[in-house]
Design a protein around this nucleic acid. Structure first.
Length: 784
DNA sequence: GTGTATCGAATTTTT
DNA sequence: TTCGATACAC
């Protein structure tokens, strides 16, 4: 066995060896925290701790899986197999399968995802005759999520005058009733939402001391990764479980806390010392991931935040390239630039598609990027957005599967009862809902015994038969599930319900893709069943599969052999690293988000997000922004992000300030109206910008917390004019001229093609040979 | 009860 | 621009 302790630096090794008592590892970006966690667990196992006694909470299930494999490589598979590892949600869902009946839930409870929750909430709001514009389902759910994550149950809410008043003041006096109705409805459906998984765990641990004791004894050693992003509910679970042995090790970095919006409480990490006064503290400050330029630029960013633990992240890696900053004319232009850079770097730096990541603030930004990559024929993969399991056809199929496990799952029933169409329409469903309410029964129960209820609720014989058929269909497969394997049952069901047939009838491209998706789902079931059968402690049950997909995140689904450019939001990129990273859309109101510039706390979280984004990069980073962007079906003007100004300009390389200069030199006009001239040169804009500047001059403290050196500014006009003298633009370049390119070196212009706004040049380079370059992107210097 | 047309709203991030 | 909900015709 390798001696893993030799692979660690001093603080890492100490953190690994400090197995007893509370430990906090403050791990700067790229400082090897996964390594520490992995070897710490391996070390525990080596010391003779039973894997059964170790609980390790990670941020994604994928991280858990990878870590488990790495541990198995050090200590062997049989040692590693009993480790409880996973996200809070999946670990405690697993625990609740055993313990939830204590609270009156079935052990096969359904997990409602966001979509299910919204759907339940919309119905409740409609039924209560409330205004959908005041009680927006998503917003209301967000509020309820806050309650739950702070352990405010329905009863606690109604005893909390301050909360009730706060909601009344927020124009939502009915929140309490809605909360109650929502919780009731979920409970009747035998369902938990994401927050319930944590809330109910807390409830069990507090109400049933013997259960708490059982898990305290079991989890003698607890490790929590990304501790800065735990919410109050998670914090309490950890605290309760660890309170007997106090062998708790938390790892995190306050500078990377980016989930406050979903209840993460940065105080959890900032006050660990108060919770455990004798805690040992191990800061990891050496960054092994990124170049000096990237590490130092990131440090200058985070220095603008007030709330943070002191630390000094440094690296002994090479200096690396400066961060390229590109100013685009439109989101499409930005995307084209990024695609072209990827294209060029694949060749010049011998990189593969998977070495690149394009990070952005919002999922909607992926569209333009995808298009540009497609045009270039670059393979890419988009993470997040509407994931596979949220597609309608998948949710339909899964709906049937959920009904087999938990027939009271109302969302699943409503989704499937008339899809494919069986002649059970809205009127019938309303009648059923009324009946269920009257008889204090579940919807399925009414459907199942429809012959009994039909006369009283005015359902005719024909409809009654259809309902009966549906109930029998479900029952039939419930029985089949007892004797057949999960794949066989679902396959049969896909056929018998008519779902496959309906999809096959649709020959549009979308229809075909829907059918493929369902087939893909069936394949993955088969894969799951096979995989679990191999495992000693495998769970090849349908409920196991459903739990897996309910808690699967997009980040979990990477195929290792996928060699594709990665597109994702910054949030999803947490914990990942790539040789080359593009951070796109660095504009005010986008990054930082329009919704997050009102308070210092919000803005600091956006800044941490920017910090996380940059620290994903190993070798090369790019910042791009655009002066206009397609949003809400319109082209809107954008201003560069304030974050760009916060980075020390010593680490930046401003790529193309020549474009605005040329556009304003007014010698052509041909390209000027490409995006509408007034998009960025309208007088109003200049005057507002200069007002701002003069205000800043009068009071330098207005705009910057710390002074930054003066530098070439974003201002498109005047100031930058002089740079056009030796910078090539498509108007100045002529065939026969000799130019200098950043990477390709000296070359001669052979030909110019395309219209002036999008001109390409064929250039023969002395060393690199003939290249076709887009003049909007290529930075050329004319030397003769 | 089903299918189509038209209008309106929407974008912050996710387990 | 795209998605979803609602209204209306069959």
């Amino acid at each position: 066995m390798e001696n893993y302790l030799d692979l660690l630096n001093e603080p890492q090794r100490k953190a690994v060896e400090a197995t007893e008592g509370p430990v906090m590892v403050i791990a700067g970006a790229g400082s090897g925290k996964t390594r520490v966690l992995t070897y710490r667990i391996a070390h525990l196992l080596n010391k003779g701790v039973d894997s059964f006694n170790i609980l390790s909470l990670t941020f994604t299930n994928k991280a858990a899986k990878e870590m488990k494999e790495r541990i198995a490589n050090v200590v062997g598979h049989s040692e590693a197999k009993n480790l409880w590892m996973g996200t809070f949600h999946s670990v405690f869902a697993r625990m609740l399968r055993v313990e939830a009946p204590l609270l009156g839930y079935p052990s096969d409870f359904t997990i409602y995802d966001q979509q299910d929750a919204v759907s339940v909430m919309s119905k409740i709001i409609t039924e209560m005759n409330l205004d959908k514009d005041i009680y927006k389902p998503k917003q209301v759910l967000g509020r309820i999520s806050q309650y739950k994550n702070n352990l405010i149950t329905v009863r606690a809410y109604h005893n909390n005058q301050a909360l009730i008043e706060a909601d009344a003041e927020a124009m939502k006096p009915r929140m309490g009733d809605i909360y109650r109705a929502y919780v009731d409805r979920c409970f009747k459906s035998g369902a938990m939402d994401f927050d319930d998984l944590l809330l109910r765990t807390n409830e069990i641990l507090t109400r049933f001391p013997e259960v708490l004791s059982k898990y305290q004894e079991r989890f003698k050693y607890i490790m929590v990764d990304e501790y800065q992003d735990t919410n109050h509910s998670q914090y309490l679970i950890v605290k309760a479980l660890a309170s007997r042995y106090e062998n708790i090790c938390v790892v995190g970095d306050d500078a990377q806390s980016i989930y406050a919006f979903r209840g993460a409480n940065i105080r959890n990490i900032l006050s660990f010392k108060q919770d455990y006064p004798d805690a040992q503290l191990y800061p990891l400050e050496q960054n092994y991931r990124s170049s000096q330029n990237i590490v130092q630029a990131a440090n200058t960013i985070i220095a603008h935040n007030q709330d943070q633990l002191e630390k000094n992240v440094w690296t002994s890696n090479e200096e690396g390239e400066k961060i390229a900053v590109y100013r685009a004319l439109s989101d499409a232009d930005e995307a084209r630039y990024i695609a072209s850079q990827i294209w060029e770097r694949q060749i010049s730096d011998h990189l593969q598609p998977k070495d690149f990541a394009i990070l952005y603030r919002t999922n909607a930004q992926s569209r333009a990027l995808e298009e540009a990559l497609r045009k270039r024929g670059i393979k890419y993969r988009v993470f997040g957005g509407t994931s596979f399991y949220q597609r309608k056809e998948i949710k339909d199929m899964v709906g049937y599967m959920r009904l087999l496990i938990n027939q009271n799952d109302e969302e699943a029933l409503l989704r499937t009862i008339n899809y494919p169409a069986r002649g059970i329409g809205q009127t019938t469903i309303s009648k059923l809902l009324v009946a269920a309410d009257q008889h204090q029964s579940t919807l399925f129960n009414i459907v199942e015994n429809i012959s009994m209820y039909a006369p009283t609720i005015g359902i005719n014989a024909g409809t009654s038969n259809k309902l009966n058929d549906f109930a029998l269909l479900i029952k039939r497969f419930q029985v089949m599930l007892k004797t057949h394997d999960v794949y066989e049952v679902t396959m049969e069901m896909a056929k018998a319900t008519g779902l496959l047939r309906t999809l096959k009838e649709d020959s549009t491209p979308e229809g075909i893709s829907r059918l493929e998706n369902v087939q893909e789902l069936l394949n993955s079931i088969q894969g799951y069943v096979d995989e679990q059968k191999q495992l000693e402690d495998g769970d090849a049950s349908l409920s196991g599969f459903l739990e897996n997909i309910a808690l699967a995140t997009d980040a979990d689904n990477t195929d290792e052999d996928d060699n594709q450019v990665n597109l994702m939001t910054v949030h999803l990129a947490k914990g990942l690293e790539f040789p080359v990273v593009f951070i796109a859309g660095l504009e005010e109101n986008l990054f930082p988000s329009m919704m997050a510039v009102n308070t210092r706390a919000e803005l600091e979280e956006e800044r941490r997000l920017f910090y996380v984004a940059l620290t994903r990069a190993e070798k090369v980073a790019y910042f791009t922004y655009s002066v206009s962007r397609f949003r809400w079906g319109k082209i809107i003007d954008c201003e560069p992000s304030r974050f760009l100004e916060e980075v020390d300009s010593n680490y930046l390389d401003w790529k193309n300030l020549h474009i605005p200069t040329q556009r304003n030199s007014n010698n052509s006009g041909l390209s000027a109206d490409l995006f509408g001239d007034d998009n960025y040169s309208a007088p109003a804009r200049y005057s507002s910008e200069s007002r701002e500047k003069s205000a800043a001059r009068q009071n330098p403290n207005i705009r910057r917390a710390t002074p930054t050196p003066p530098k070439a500014n974003f201002k498109p006009v005047g100031e930058t004019k002089s740079t056009s003298a030796n910078t090539a633009n498509h108007l100045g370049l002529q065939i026969g001229q000799v130019v200098l390119h950043d990477r390709f070196g000296r070359g001669e212009v052979k030909d110019l093609q395309g219209d002036p706004s999008d001109m390409k040049a064929i250039i023969h380079f002395d060393t690199a040979g003939e290249k076709k370059l887009l003049l909007n992107f290529a930075k050329l210097k004319i030397i003769s």
